[in-house]
Amino acid sequence: MFAYAMRRLGLGATIILVAMMILFSMIYLIPGDPASVALGPRATPEMIAELRSRMGLDDPVLVQFWNFVSSAVQGNLGVEALSGRPVLTVVMEQLPFTLAMVLCSITWAVLLGIPLGCIAAVKRGGFVDRVIGVLSVAVIAVPSFVVAIYALLLFAVHLKWLPAIGAGESGNLKSQLMALILPSLAVGLGWIGYIARLVRASMLETLEAGHIRTARAFGLPERWIIYNYALRIAILPTVTLLGVGIGHMLSSSVFAEIVFARPGIGKLVYEAISTRNYPLVTGAVLVTTAFFVLVNVLADLVIGLLDPRVRASFN
């Protein structure tokens, strides 16, 4: 198990390195001078040249890449050229807001998606199964931003139950939770449908398995069989999906952070790209890529813990 975890982490490091190489290539292929964008129209050519030099933009791309990687390994992602603030600080200020939203979205998806999938499988072919099927496809099909805007209009503008913008008052947990409800619902709604469909399909397959028939033959209660035998196996693809889904949700966070004027890593990267703030772009992407890789490694390990067959394959 330990060797497997190490192998996965090694692979993860390679993925991060490749991702950063692609990012650096893309950054230097797109037009736009970060120094002149940052300094604005009143800057003189000398000021622009000085800032370019300070940002290290005069060095060859490979030198810049090497400088970035060697510093990043030591935990230094550089500094923002204009404010002089460490990039890591800026990124870590924003990351918790995005992670809270992603976590909350996953919670919506898991708490609603898994039970709905189970019920649909148990009631296979019946009215409830059909209703859940239609609803699941519907929430997958509706674009998240449409959900976000309508939810905002209904719950924030019309009913005034929830805040429309921001991340809540600092130090006020209730206010922060209230501010999380709408954006996380918007990001996670589609995933409720995905998970419900996946769990249903997986449950149907598992419920036909030999050990389930044996359990039924022994007269074990149906609820016991479903939750302790069938679901435990049927949920494995869901764990894998959630690992990948976190990456998708990190991407989706951009629109939610803009629509709901929330702070977060998505909006930070979006703005940094618009202003060609390369140190911030590379730093933020490095942190989110590392997080995504870590989550997927953890998902693999969780599957190993849940499924003895996978665990055996580690060796």
Binding site: L152, L153, A156, V157, K160, P163, A164, I165, G166, I258, V259, F260, A261, E271
Partner: peptide, 19 residues
């Protein structure tokens, strides 16, 4: 002072009583 880049978002924030 709340930084809101998107004007439509700000309008909805205003209508919701946040501004």
């Amino acid at each position: 002072i709340l930084p809101i880049e998107d004007e439509k978002t700000a309008e909805m924030g205003y209508e919701a009583g946040d501004l």
